[in-house]
Design a protein around this nucleic acid. Structure first.
Lengths: 209, 209
DNA sequence: TCACCACTGTACGGTAGCGTACGGAAACAT
DNA sequence: ATGTTTCCGTACGCTACCGTACAGTGGTGA
């Protein structure tokens, strides 16, 4: 789980390699994934890296600076990843389906999702709040753009994008706090995703009796 | 914000009233609303109540016991409140509309919602997790019941209930971390809620070209 | 090779909160 | 009124973590 500080010499002299600021931010995100922001603590982190605080306070002014760096790094890496993953698909409808299916299934695997959950859990932190606000708005805008590309007028596209993103956020939460309430069997899960896509792309006019 | 420890005598002798266990759980929930579970700390709580730890450790074995009591109390009060509020309406469709509208607007006012957000933020805590799981499943089951009463088959009703609840959870999150991404103008907000209700109750078959 | 600089370890003081011990006050029963 | 139970305050030690001071070490260029 933790990348121990490995020796670099091959033969006899085993020397611990020096650490960079990036090593610390990476460790911070790793700690955040399991333990939340509270786990981003200098001394435990140093222990995990096989170093001491003396190293840390060289690279960062204080704990707060580390948090800021880690959170900004997450924003950068994370948004690039998702966009690059979906934007390959040319057809808007297929892209929407790909996005929703991908994102609803992604809550199953833990690694990346738990960082996001940890961020949501600490949304009040002054360094976390603006990042979450940016990421969220970016998602809504992107999803709304997909609906707009499918022909819905701007306002309605925005509303559908909003519903899609809120559904995703809630799905992530539910996978975390009440996994048992979500469909478990693979077939049922697939049907659920299909159903969601269907409802999100349903016609506007009410047509039920 | 905090109910200070008031005197009870009318004239000259001002005596602080004694505290009950319920006073402590109430204060704990109050602290949780602004500050999260971390703010449920014995010494600060005692300060807010104008008492000392000596009092606390008489009523509770330790901090953990207080957390458990507070969280269970929240579960009890909270579920009763919501059910009682909506179950008056006899017509299922009206009840569904009432529920969704109520719940999507509720994220605006802070009091009750912030406790729930705090719980979600600490979902990993051993005392919080089971409560959240129960409350969530209860909501899904209830909402699914509404859709079932409207005529959808059980599986689809469950899926729609699931989507409704995830949308609610995500909405609450978004109101917290990216309020600016949600509709701000009252008219737009109303249209958004209508749109959500429409999509959640849309017919099953895809009918778009 | 040697002086310098980037980096790290050690040692220290400070703060916040948990939990315990115990004496004493306040209510209550008799 | 007085003893008993209930409740509360004070004082203490303990742990975890933050941040600082400073002495060292190892690589690197002159």
């Amino acid at each position: 789980m933790v990348s121990e500080r490995r020796v670099k010499g091959s033969g006899g002299k085993r020397t611990a390699p020096r650490l960079t600021a990036d090593d610390w931010t990476a460790a911070a995100l790793e700690a955040m994934a399991d333990g939340g922001l509270a786990a981003v603590a200098v001394e435990p982190l140093a222990a995990r890296l096989g170093a001491t605080k003396g190293s840390f306070y060289w690279h960062f002014a204080n704990r707060d600076a580390l948090i800021e760096a880690a959170v900004l790094r997450w924003e950068r890496d994370h948004t690039e990843a998702v966009i690059g993953l979906v934007d390959a698909e040319p057809d808007p409808l297929a892209r929407l389906r790909l996005l929703i299916g991908l994102v609803l299934h992604s809550t199953a695997r833990p690694v990346d999702g738990s960082i996001e959950l940890a961020m949501l859990a600490t949304a009040d932190h002054p360094h976390v709040a603006p990042v979450l606000a940016r990421v969220t708005e970016r998602r809504v805008a992107y999803t709304a753009g997909l609906f707009a590309a499918l022909g819905w007028p701007a306002a309605e596209a925005r509303h559908r994008g909003l519903l899609a993103v809120t559904a995703y956020l809630g799905h992530a939460q539910m996978a975390h706090v009440a996994a048992g309430s979500l469909p478990t069997a693979e077939a049922d899960r697939q049907r659920y995703v299909d159903q969601v896509i269907l409802l999100l792309t349903a016609a506007s006019a009410p047509d039920r009796a």
